[in-house]
Nucleic acid binder design. Structure first.
Lengths: 202, 202
DNA sequence: CATGCCGTGATACACATGTATCATGCGAAT
DNA sequence: ATTCGCATGATACATGTGTATCACGGCATG
């Protein structure tokens, strides 16, 4: 069916218009009319392809998650082969930090959604915000193999350390978005911390 | 002048109504009418005491900052006398974490403002978001005296370490607010990290 | 050819929002 | 006692919002 792929293409076009607005002006500026204008379609079309605004928001959020996952996969493969646990951890964490245009865009848009979800208790929660959990368990796994490789002190608790790392990266990203420091400084802070973490057996 | 203190009292009453709404329903639900209803006054009064909505938002934000500073002062004095640098660092960081009703309230409300400020580029920025910077320099100072006391490795960079700590606490708070974990777990992660940090000379 | 459904447009509706306007009371100073 | 200015209430206004309705064209299927 040609119509089906047209459908999907339209939906993508509209959802990405929503994400573009969320990035540049925030989610609260992403009205149906604004999205329609940004996508270059009529308001009726937005209504047609996404019955309700909530549907549009959820669909766009899913696409945003996919974009982040794509980026992480790219950074992971760029970490070398075979990658050391430390290289993997560094790649994944640095990939999240808002250091380039794409990561800034993703971080800003995620933050917009985050603010929305805070007061809409579980309305969007079903979408699987579990992304943070899988990140932390991935980090914990790498830390464990690093311990087996002898590049990380066995005294560390992998899960807790992973949670701390994830939180620090989130906080650093927040500070960059807030204009408190730039992305490179945040990255420097992160790598400094990783240096301390992996200092073992020297 | 009695009228002057009445004025201030009214402003406080209205601004705190705004903060209450921002905490429970988010800032986007804090319309002038909602604030008026929450404060038990007429819409006209809110307009009268705060000419514009932006004025109300800024005033309430200033009060929120004062509340946080009060809380930090309380936790600092509770850290003992004379407090060790580590106790001070622990107190200040733990005080920020959303572990009890007050800190949850403050964190939630700050987050609401943060989301607002992200897309209103510097409209509220003048208010002095520098609170984060003073926190970090306070932490760095404590870390330096800890190094002089011999309780912290002199190899650490105090400023960078302080920035990392502040970011981690922010990120942990974010995860608690997002329902990813509870406040006590976040506190455990933080103290675990502080244990590692202050492991020196054993 | 007729029928009916899908995609699309223009427009309407009901409501919420920030702000402005008009009016009234009320205490104080002249 | 009158006048003036501050405090407060009721209400209006313009605008933006999400959603619903009506209408029309095209295309496939009977």
């Amino acid at each position: 069916m040609n119509t089906k792929v047209e459908h999907e293409e339209r939906r993508r076009q509209i959802a990405e218009a929503l994400l573009r607005i969320a990035d540049t002006q925030g989610l609260q500026s992403a009205s149906m009319r604004a999205v329609a204008a940004e996508a270059g379609v009529s308001l009726r079309l937005v209504q047609y392809y996404f019955e309700t605004k909530e549907g549009l928001l959820l669909d766009a959020l899913a696409r945003l998650g996919a974009q982040l996952q794509d980026r992480m996969a790219r950074w992971i493969t760029a970490a070398g082969s075979p990658p050391t646990p430390r290289a993997l951890v560094t790649a994944v964490l640095a990939c999240i930090l808002p250091t380039d245009a794409e990561s800034r865009r993703i971080a800003r848009t995620y933050t917009a959604y985050y603010a929305l979800v805070l007061n809409d208790p579980a309305a969007l929660e079903k979408h699987g915000t579990g992304q943070a959990e899988v990140l932390e368990s991935f980090l914990a796994k790498q830390l464990r193999t690093a311990q087996q490789d002898g590049t990380l002190s066995p005294a560390r608790n992998p899960e807790i350390t992973a949670a701390g790392l994830a939180a620090m990266v989130n906080g650093l990203g927040q500070s960059v978005l807030g204009g408190q420091r730039d992305g490179e400084t945040a990255l420097a802070i992160l790598t400094h911390h990783l240096d301390e973490l992996f200092t073992f057996g020297d």
